[in-house]
Design a binder for these strands. Sequence first.
DNA 1: AATGAATGAGGTTTCATTCAT
DNA 2: GATGAATGAAACCTCATTCAT
Lengths: 223, 223, 223, 223
Amino acid sequence: MKAAVVGTKTGKRVPRAVREQQMLDAAVAGFARHGYSAASMDDIAEAAGVSKPLVYQYLKSKEDLFTACIERESAALIAAVRAGTLSGGGAVPADRMLWNGLCAFFAHTAAHPDGWAVLHQQARSQGQPFADGVALLRAEIAELVTELIGVAARDAGCDGVLAEREVSGLAHALVGAAESLADWANTREQDPPSAKETAATLMNFCWAGLENLLGGDRWTPAH
Amino acid sequence: MKAAVVGTKTGKRVPRAVREQQMLDAAVAGFARHGYSAASMDDIAEAAGVSKPLVYQYLKSKEDLFTACIERESAALIAAVRAGTLSGGGAVPADRMLWNGLCAFFAHTAAHPDGWAVLHQQARSQGQPFADGVALLRAEIAELVTELIGVAARDAGCDGVLAEREVSGLAHALVGAAESLADWANTREQDPPSAKETAATLMNFCWAGLENLLGGDRWTPAH
Amino acid sequence: MKAAVVGTKTGKRVPRAVREQQMLDAAVAGFARHGYSAASMDDIAEAAGVSKPLVYQYLKSKEDLFTACIERESAALIAAVRAGTLSGGGAVPADRMLWNGLCAFFAHTAAHPDGWAVLHQQARSQGQPFADGVALLRAEIAELVTELIGVAARDAGCDGVLAEREVSGLAHALVGAAESLADWANTREQDPPSAKETAATLMNFCWAGLENLLGGDRWTPAH
Amino acid sequence: MKAAVVGTKTGKRVPRAVREQQMLDAAVAGFARHGYSAASMDDIAEAAGVSKPLVYQYLKSKEDLFTACIERESAALIAAVRAGTLSGGGAVPADRMLWNGLCAFFAHTAAHPDGWAVLHQQARSQGQPFADGVALLRAEIAELVTELIGVAARDAGCDGVLAEREVSGLAHALVGAAESLADWANTREQDPPSAKETAATLMNFCWAGLENLLGGDRWTPAH
DNA sequence: AATGAATGAGGTTTCATTCAT
DNA sequence: GATGAATGAAACCTCATTCAT
C-alpha cells in the first residue's frame, strides 16, 4: 500500500462526467439531509468542491439537479434489486427469489441511505414533477413482485386464482412494507438489523399469507 | 336574529380557540401541499383569512406552528384508530380488533388526506425536531399493534415468543403496507376499492404470517 | 418662513400612497440614468429610502415597477400638453394652439428630464411589453395633432384636401421632430434653449409646410 | 474544386477579419433586440458560431464590442447617406440633394434595422461612453444638413442668416421626423407607403419652412 | 383582537471574464 | 486559431419575523 489517499476534492480541471458525479453525490447528501427546499445550492456546490456557477452550467437548475438525483438513484436501486432476484441462476423457487430480491433491496438501501431518503422521503413530498419520477420506480418494482407472485402461482399449480386487481394490491402492500422496513432499519441507531434479518422479518410477515391466498385460503371478517 | 353569518371567512373578533383552529386548518393544507419549507407563512395567513402578525401572536413561529399541526393530526389519528379497535365492546378476538383498527385507519386517512400527508410525508423529512414528534405517534401505534399481538398470543396460549425488536419491525411493516395500500386505493381511479375491501386485502396479506409467528412457525431461507 | 425643511427621506411609517410615489420617483431617476436592465432594485430602494422587500410588496416586480413609471410619466405628460392646448379659451387659431401645446410639451420634458428619458429612450428600447405602453402615448399625442390640423384646415376653408393617410404621416413627423428636439434641448448642457425657443424652432420648421399643403401647394421631386 | 463550402457557419480556421465581422453581426443583432445590458456575451458568441474566449480575444470586452458595433454601423449609415446626396453629379439644387439624402437614409435604415436600432435606441440610452460615440454620428449628419442649408442659402443668395444653434436644432428636428416616419411607414401594415412616398411627405413637411427661414420669413407667436 | 408598514438575511440564477490546454 | 473548465460578483426576488398603531 503506497499512497492510498486520492481525496474527493480533486484540485482543478476535472472532466465534465466526473464533476457531474461529484455534484450529484453532494446533491443527494444535501437533499437527503435537509429536504429539497431547505437544501441550498450554495451548500451543495461547496460540498462538491466547486463554485455555484459550475453547478448551473452542468445541471441547469435546482429542479433539474433534483431530477438527476432521482434518476440516478432510481436506476441504481432497480439495478441492485433486479440483480438480486436473478442471482442463483435458473430454477429457483419463488419464495427464494423474493427473498433474494428483498435482501438486495435492504442491502442497497442500507448502503446508500441518502439515496434512499431522496427517493422515499424527499421526492415523494415535492409535488407532481418529482413524485411522478418516483412513481415509475414503484411501478417497476411492483411489476417485479407481480411477476414473482405469478411464478409462485405456477409453482403451486394454481394459476389464475387471484384477480389482477388483488395481485396489484398485494404487490403494493409488499412494496410499502419493504419501504417502511427500510426506513425502520436505517433509523435504528443502536444495533441496527442486518439486511438479511430485515428481509426475514418481512418474509415471515407476508409469505404465509401469500401462500394461503394461492391455496384459496382467505381471511374473512365474519369470523 | 341571533347568530347570523357563519361562513368560513368570519369578519372579525373571533374567539381565540376558533381562530387557532382556522390557522391550523390552513397550515395543515399548506404544509401538506407544498412541504414545510416551501409553504409560506404569507399563504397560510391568507388562507386562514387572517393577517400574519396574528398567526405569530397565537403560534409563536413557523416551527411551533408545524409542531402544533403534527400534534393535532397525530392525536386525531390515534383517537380514530383507538376508537376503531375498541368498537365491538369487550371480548373480541385479536384479528377482529386488528381488522377494526385498519378500517378506522383507512377511513381516517382517506377523510383527512392533508393531515395524513403532514404526518407521513412532511414531518418525517424535516429532521430531528419534527421527526421526534412523529416518533411518538409511531410509538403509540406500535404499542397498539403490540397489544393486539399480545392479545392474539394469549388467545393462542403462547405469550412472549416474539422479541420487542421483532414486534417493532412487524408494526412498521404493517403501517407501511397500510399506507401504501391507501395510496393505491386512492389512485385507482376507475372502480376504486372500498375501505373494507382494502382492509381485507391487507388482512389476507399479513394475518396468516402473524399467526404462524405466534405459533413458532417461521419462514427460513434455507428451504 | 419658519422651518421649511421637510426632506424626502421621512423617518418611518409612511402611508402607502406616499411611499409608492417616493419609490416611483427613485425608479424613474434610476431607469433614466442607467437604463432598465442596468438599474438595480437595490439602488432604487436605497434611493427611495426604503428596503428592497417593501418595493416588492408595493410594486410587484421590476417589470411592474417599470410599467408603473411609464404610466405615471405618460399621464403627466399628456395632461400637461392637453392643458397647454386648451389654454387661451375658446376661439384660438390653430397655429396658436399648436404653439401652446409645443410650449407645454417642451416645458414639461425640460422640467422632468428623467421622466422624459424613461418614456422616450428607455421604454422604447425594452421590447414588446413596454414599447406598447409608449405606443399608446404616441397615439394619443398624434391624435391631438391630427385634430389640430383639422382645425387649421377648417380655418383655412379647405377641409378634406388631405387624405387621412397623409395627415397621419404628418402628425408622426411632427411628433418625431418634437421628441428629437426635446432630447436635443435637454442634452445641450451649456446655454440650453428655453421651451419657447425650442417651440419656435419647431414651428418655423414645420408650419409653413403645413400651410402650403393645406393650400394645395406641394413639393415634388421632379421640381 | 477550389472553394467548396461557404455557408454561414464555417467550420474552423477562419481568418481574423472574417471572424470579427461575424461577431459584430451577431453582436449588432443581439444588442438591437435585447439592449446593451440584457444582451449576453454567451448568446452573442453562440450566435456568431464561436466560443466565448475567442470573442474576448478579438474584441477585448463587452464595452469594446459595443463600441465597435456603433462605429461600424455609424460609418455604414454615414456612407450611405453621403453617397445618396452626392448622386446626380455636380450641379444639383439643394432640395434635390436633401431629397436624395432622405431616400438613401430611409433605404439604409430599412435595410439594416438592427444597425439603426443600435445607433438610435441602444447607444443613446447607455450613458456617457457610448452616447459620445453616437454624438459623432449626429455631428456628421448635422454637418451634412448644415452644408445643404448652406448650399440652399447660396442658391437663394442669402448666406449666414441662421445661427449655428438654430441649424443644429433644425437638423435634429429633421432626423427625428425622419426616424418617426420610418417607424410609421414600417408599422402601417396594410398598404405601406414606399420609401419615396415617405420622403415626399417629409419634404412637404419641412422644406417650405426651411426656405422661409432662409428668406428671413419667420413664424412668430404674436401672430 | 387585529393589522398595515417595514426589514435582515438568504434563496436561485446569470453575467462578464479568465485560465490551461 | 480555438476551446472546455471554472469563478467572483451581483442581479432579482422571497421569507420569516417584528413594530407601532
